[in-house]
Amino acid sequence: MLFVGDRQAKGWRIAISALAYGLPFLFIIAPLLSFLTYSFFWVEGGQMHYDLTWRNYSRFFTDAIFIPVLWQTCLLCLAVAVLAALLGYPVAFRLATLSGRRKYILLMLVLVPLLMSYIIKIYAIRSILGGNGFLNRFLVWANLIDQPLTLFVFNLNAVLLTLTVLLIPFAILPIFLSLERIPKNLIEASTDLGASNWQTFCRVILPLSLPGVVTATSFVFVLAIGDFLTPQMVGGPNGFTFGRIIYSQFGAAFNWPFGAALSVILALVMSAVIALGRRFERQT
């Protein structure tokens, strides 16, 4: 144990304790609490009213715009999560079958994009998408299509593609970890008992890796639904998502309390998804 024993230690210990409780309280708990409180304030005609009401929340439920957008965003993020898990699974499997230096390098290649600037990745993907983007130009140049495809213009499809590409590494890691945890002797037993590789995969490996797949899916979903930069950059005028609406409350619409209330609702949705994921994990 540190800072016990001598006389000067007591002073150190008190100072450390004060900081260890005080700072997180001041810079993490207090902002979150003020955020929560703000969601009960209200704005009218550009004027903040500091009395507590439920009107932001009731506006969310009564106004015809918000629930459909939230639902649409949930479906979009679910699609992103499923796509990312489907694409991530083979990579995780490949990683698990490799060993030594090659495994290490491949794992590095999965991790490096995580530290790369989010906004730069969006920008790079954006340069490929779009009616005039590199993908369309390449396809026209290669004479594969006559007209630029409208599939890649800036809309919700572009958001779906971009988010999937951005979040694949987050799907790969949990699946990889769950594959690594499967005891080798189970696989050997299956092979010894005469199962083919395919049977071993379907009956032993896949079921045992499902918790990882569930974690990956809920992880990607939560990351996708909290994002507002991607829809802002590649969503175009029609690619409205819930995150973008929240962001606009703090910019153009200038209704901070309502934005805070919408964020609280978003946080509730996220917590529900995480809890649901946990439950599935325990069952499988």
Binding site: F27, P31, S34, F35, F228, F250, W256, S263, L266
Partner: peptide, 13 residues
Amino acid sequence: MPPIMIGLSLLIF
């Protein structure tokens, strides 16, 4: 937590 929430909390704070 999603960065948008921590950013907004600090902004309000």
